[in-house]
């Protein structure tokens, strides 16, 4: 039933992505080359993993602007731990724990102390960046990671990077979690109507806290995978990625008002955003122009989302 498909919230990013991919393959001869497809994968996979976390927050009616810093922190911590001579599993474990800790800090600030989510996570983004950069030294980029670490980013299976498989595994897992478990469904109840969710006995604060914690963990995972792929830490990781993820999630069916969204939507939204970036690269446009486009897209997305919510409230006679 095509009508049914079109009503799904994932339909919009799917169509957008397909259209953009079609346009790109027409406009550029190198779009379908394996080099370009690999770089697309390497851009989609970590971003999508982070967008999954953002989507969890958005479903509850919140957002996390600190994921860029968490990604950077994860990358530079990996380098630091590598300098200390830790083994690959230990590096991964500790980095993930660090991400979890930052996520818990966000959750604490927002869900426990009740600080406005935007300001709290902007503050953590700022602090996190400062903290990550204290770990940074210029020589870091010349020291190599062990082979098994690099393999996480570079290794392929059936023509796709391991990190893409990881992303797909999380996509499936999270998709099932959100759709088929009570714990997952609770997010939608909290985001849809907080007061009512309290009345039916859900602990909204705990749920929001856990979403932030998970977001921190996922951002750290993305950071590890990304740094493994580029083989050495850089100070430019994670810049602007929080915006990309937020836009991707809203295009993918999430809403700033909460209660909506899916893992698949987030992944498709990220695919669209990555194709957009890819377009800039292929057509050799200024990379900073991306920021302009992303910023304007964000405003457009906010306005459309806000307009739809306003219309709904008007229809209900609340205004």
């Amino acid at each position: 039933m095509p009508g049914k498909l079109a009503r799904k919230s994932e339909f919009v990013p799917l169509v957008l992505s397909l259209a953009l991919a079609a346009a790109l393959s027409a406009a550029s001869g190198v779009f379908w080359t394996s080099a370009n497809l690999n770089s697309l994968q390497a851009s989609i996979a970590p971003t999508a993993i982070m967008a999954f976390g953002m989507m969890l927050c958005l479903i509850c009616g919140y957002f996390d602007l600190s994921i860029g810093s968490i990604m950077l922190l994860a990358g530079l911590l990996s380098g630091k731990f590598n300098d200390w001579g830790l083994s690959t599993p230990a590096i991964v474990l500790f980095v993930l724990l660090a991400g979890l800790a930052v996520g818990c800090l966000n959750g604490f600030l927002v869900a426990v102390l009740g600080i406005n989510a935007l300001i709290a996570t902007i503050g953590v983004q700022y602090i996190g960046y400062g903290f990550a950069m204290t770990l940074w030294d210029r020589n870091m980029q010349h020291r190599k990671f062990p082979g098994d670490f690099i393999a996480m980013g570079d290794g392929q299976f059936l023509g796709m990077y391991y990190m893409t498989w990881v992303m797909l595994a999380i996509l499936v897992g999270l998709g099932f979690f959100l759709k088929y478990t009570l714990s997952g469904r609770r997010l939608y109840y909290v985001g849809g109507n907080r007061e009512a969710s309290r009345l039916i006995g859900f602990n909204d604060r705990r749920i929001v806290f856990l979403c932030y914690a998970a977001t921190g963990l996922l951002a750290a995972l993305a950071g590890v995978l990304a740094v493994a792929r580029i083989q050495s830490p850089t100070q430019y990781m994670g810049g602007g990625v929080h915006m990309t993820c937020m836009i991707a999630c809203v295009i993918g069916g999430g809403s700033f008002a909460g209660g909506k969204g899916s893992a698949l939507g987030a992944a498709l939204g990220v695919t669209f955003m990555s194709l957009l970036t890819n377009m800039f690269n292929l057509l050799e446009m200024n990379t900073q122009l991306q920021n302009v486009v992303v910023g304007l897209t964000l405003i457009a997305v906010i306005v459309v989302d806000g307009y739809l919510n306003l219309k709904k409230m008007r229809a209900m006679g609340m205004i």
């Binding site: 099932f176 759709k179 088929y180 478990t181 009570l182 469904r185 939608y188 109840y189 985001g191 849809g192 109507n193 007061e195 009512a196 969710s197 009345l199 039916i200 209660g259 909506k260």
Partner: peptide, 25 residues
């Protein structure tokens, strides 16, 4: 009303999802 407009009718009737198969809804 204390209802969830974003969710389906069925999920509003059964917010605790008591129907599981091997743990899955």
């Amino acid at each position: 009303l204390a209802v969830f407009e974003n969710l389906t009718v069925a999920e509003n009737i059964f917010p605790y999802h008591n129907f599981r198969k091997a743990g899955w809804i």
